[in-house]
């Protein structure tokens, strides 16, 4: 029943056995030991499990692990390290964008994806980009502000 699934997560190759019904989210959390991606609803509604799969933003609870065979994945653990946060993570920290933090991994990936596609987003672009990521703590303002600030920082860095 189980088959071998080999993929690259945050630049590291991972190979584990997975049942056909195992979701990519469960594979990441239980086989790869990466619990940053969150199980909030398992029906693609909350966005807590968002990851980048070959550059596309996906909800990993709705994808089977076997479908990701050979894929390049980025999860929250791949965005920055505690000693070297990404500019987006820095902006979230400075702006107080994280409260309970449960939605934050998904938010960060949705925002990373947005800034890759659109380096100069306006408020509505940002709201649209994170509209698939529910947050119950913040009312979104400080998250929107942080993403906006990260875009500014990146622009500044590009000069």
């Amino acid at each position: 029943m189980k088959s071998s699934v080999k993929l690259t997560v945050n630049g590291l190759e991972q190979e584990h056995q997975a049942e056909p019904r195992t979701s990519l989210l469960t594979f990441l959390r239980e086989q790869c030991g990466l619990t940053g991606s969150k199980r909030g609803c398992e029906e693609g509604e909350c966005g807590g499990c968002s990851v980048l799969l070959d550059g596309e933003l996906v909800t990993s609870c709705l994808i089977f692990a076997v479908e990701a065979q050979g894929a390049q994945l980025v999860t929250v653990e791949g965005l920055g390290t505690p000693h070297h946060l990404s500019p987006l993570q820095e902006a979230f920290a400075t702006d107080g964008a994280s409260q309970c933090g449960f939605c934050i991994p998904g938010m960060l990936l949705a925002a990373t994806n947005l800034l890759e596609r659109n380096p100069d987003p306006n408020e509505q672009d940002i709201r649209k980009a994170i509209s698939g990521n529910l947050c119950r703590c913040t009312g979104y303002d400080l998250i929107v502000a942080a993403i906006s600030m990260a875009a500014e920082l990146k622009k500044g860095a590009r000069g």
């Binding site: 030991g33 619990t35 940053g36 929250v76 965005l79 933090g101």
Partner: peptide, 22 residues
Amino acid sequence: SIPRVDVTSKLTGQALFGEDVK
């Protein structure tokens, strides 16, 4: 408005929530 003391663990996916305890 100092940053929250738990912010780094929450921004890097290291914070252990209910289902994350190993």
